[in-house]
Nucleic acid binder design. Sequence first.
DNA 1: GGTCAATGGATTGCATACAACTACTTGGAC
DNA 2: GTCCAAGTAGTTGTATGCAATCCATTGACC
Lengths: 221, 221
Amino acid sequence: MDTLPTASPEASGDSAYGQVRSMIASGELAAGSWLRETTLADRIGVSRTPIREALNRLAAEGLVELSRNKGAQVVSFSPDDVAGLYDVRAGFEPHAVLLSVPQLTDDDVAELAALSERMEAVVAEGGDLAGLGALNAAFHGIFIERCGNRHVATALQTVMRPAVVAHTFRRYSAEALRRSMQHHAELVAAAAARDGEWAEAVMRTHILAARNAAGAHPSTR
Amino acid sequence: MDTLPTASPEASGDSAYGQVRSMIASGELAAGSWLRETTLADRIGVSRTPIREALNRLAAEGLVELSRNKGAQVVSFSPDDVAGLYDVRAGFEPHAVLLSVPQLTDDDVAELAALSERMEAVVAEGGDLAGLGALNAAFHGIFIERCGNRHVATALQTVMRPAVVAHTFRRYSAEALRRSMQHHAELVAAAAARDGEWAEAVMRTHILAARNAAGAHPSTR
DNA sequence: GGTCAATGGATTGCATACAACTACTTGGAC
DNA sequence: GTCCAAGTAGTTGTATGCAATCCATTGACC
């Protein structure tokens, strides 16, 4: 897993796009820093053309900002930005879960369980927040991808992506982390039972707890 | 206003992107049809490079679908797709309105009023659904742009765009059209009064009525 | 000393050429 | 007549070269 997983198979096909995105997600490219096309091209080992395409995609996804004739820079998120993104997620993602859970296959549930266990293992070993973020994105991505509507899925992915990047490096307390892992386990249980409403409620809880853990209280907005 | 308005100033800067998108929005490029890069390049009068960038952006926005080494085709929307998009809009757009209305300037309100009147004029003259769709997109776009959070705005715009395209060519009954215009007028009134909750309720009504008018009943899903 | 204009460097935007891949057609064998 | 395979046309993916634009530095003028 060299790139941030999205469960969309062609995403990692364009390696330039995937590599630039993983550099952003991992923090290797700091928020606000300028992305020089030639620099990225040299670092990745391709010409400027695929780099430019990657930057365009990332701009459309809200992960970089383009200034005409000036270049691209990694987006930065103010606390208010993060709070707003959590609000949007709190509105959308439970709904997506309600739609997707009844349609999940046994394989999907098994994948969710595996991802949940891997995240717990990472937490138990006590580290690698970047890897945790990637696993978490994959976990949440499954629900969105399976919501039964292709266009809704792509739209929600677009909402999710900046949220995932913004949240990747926030520090959670040990308690908040443990609680988050419990939510994942309960989501797996609800998914296994194909109980959409249960899963919806858990997901809403999960996101609101995360918003709080990220220090983005609703009253601050 | 030669392109579909988005209130994002740089959008119409890249003319190739704007032109391809307006071709899609106007139906000049039919849903499901293949977009050949050389064909588009010749028609617009540029080389393949800006066309490719436009197609990448449009793909990220969910307006075209890319198949590796095979090209791009305009997305098509099944009735279920449309229903899902309306559901998503019903979920988020009222919330965006609630956030944005208290922050609107007098100029914003005046622009909303002007757009509402222009739409009524178009309906009174009895035609040009494509132009109506563009005006409608601009009207709704104002609320989203002013929601107070840049990233939320871009994410929600991405959710909106396919919905707008999918909805542009649906035929509404005269009664549904009239009702929709009344909703717009009431939204302007609520915005002028800076009453976010009122506007939120009107917007929810507006979208659910549109969903019904589009023949996308929630029970069909 | 401060401000404005010109110039140089650097970077992006676009066009073109070539390579890689896909899909179709055509020919032959069974 | 059907199926398979090879060739070929057409399309996309990538690399490179050049023009246009922007930013910073430098110099002159007030």
